[in-house]
Simulated scan of single mutants.
Amino acid sequence: MMTIDLKQAALALVAIAGLSAPLAAHETVTVGPYEITTFDPANHSQEPTECDKLASHPEDPFSVWEGKSSSRDIDLPAAIEACRKAVEADPANPRLNYQLGRVYGYSQRGDEAMPYRNAAIEGGYPQSLFVIGYIYIEGMNIEQDVCLGAELMRLSAFAGRFAGQVGFPHYVLSGRFDDCPVTKDTDEMLGMLAAAKPQGFYQNLLVASLKERVASAE
């Protein structure tokens, strides 16, 4: 369905384990229907908005607020309204688009979420690459497309998202991507894991376990 050259992907997002260097911010990589640019937070406002306060995720590495991890903790109608206003005021900001897509998705309004999810992906937003990749894989209020999800999750790993760095090798080892043309290179996955920055005992164990499993799967 789609192919991504390893060097192009590495260049387009972030250097990982010495594989490559980033492309200039104006350059893009094509992934399925998406034209994904390099994300640079310096190109977007970092001033917290009401949208950030209501809809950010605590594990988002580029969040500007502490965030809420569960839909149960979010006032969804208020968050949708706040994020709609924030995106209207700053439509090119991938973080705000991701957050509006997030609260629409939590509200089971997947169709309304898609334009904002797409904008966040095309802006190269690392959290969006992982999250939307995951929901494509699982078909969560979106038309399931495992192979597109695989490509996005792989790019989230290049973009430095810990969940992608461990999630992509996990799915490969589980056979979930066996029918997909996504690159499943052992050295690349070991590079993802080498670049991962676990925080805490269990995350360290997970990375160590995945390294052993990837290396032994050759």
Rank of each mutant, 00 (worst) to 15 (best):
M189S: 11
K85V: 03
L205N: 14
G67P: 07
G67H: 10
D60S: 01
A217I: 06
D187H: 13
E35H: 15
C180F: 00
V166F: 09
A159P: 02
F201Q: 14
R161C: 02
P126G: 07
A113N: 01
V166I: 15
S63R: 15
I137T: 15
E218V: 15
F130H: 14
G160C: 10
A12I: 04
F158D: 01
V207C: 05
M114C: 03
A82N: 01
T186W: 04
D111C: 01
R161I: 03
T28P: 00
P169N: 07
F62K: 06
V29R: 01
N97Q: 11
G124N: 00
L152Y: 12
L206H: 09
F62D: 15
F177P: 02
L190V: 09
P48E: 04
I74K: 01
L129I: 07
Q203D: 15
D185I: 06
A196N: 02
E218K: 15
S56Q: 11
E151D: 14
N141W: 09
R176Y: 12
G175Q: 04
I4D: 13
Q199D: 12
G133Y: 12
P41I: 06
R154A: 08
S71Y: 10
N118T: 15
T3A: 11
P115V: 06
E35G: 13
M153K: 06
S69L: 13
H44T: 04
R95L: 10
S71V: 13
K53P: 00
I135A: 01
M153L: 13
L190E: 07
V166K: 02
Q127S: 14
A159I: 10
Y171K: 12
M2Q: 07
L210S: 03
A208C: 06
G139F: 12
M192L: 12
V172H: 03
S209C: 07
G67Q: 06
R154T: 11
M1D: 11
A78F: 00
R154D: 03
K211V: 15
S70V: 10
E122Y: 04
T37D: 00
H26R: 08
N43I: 07
V166L: 05
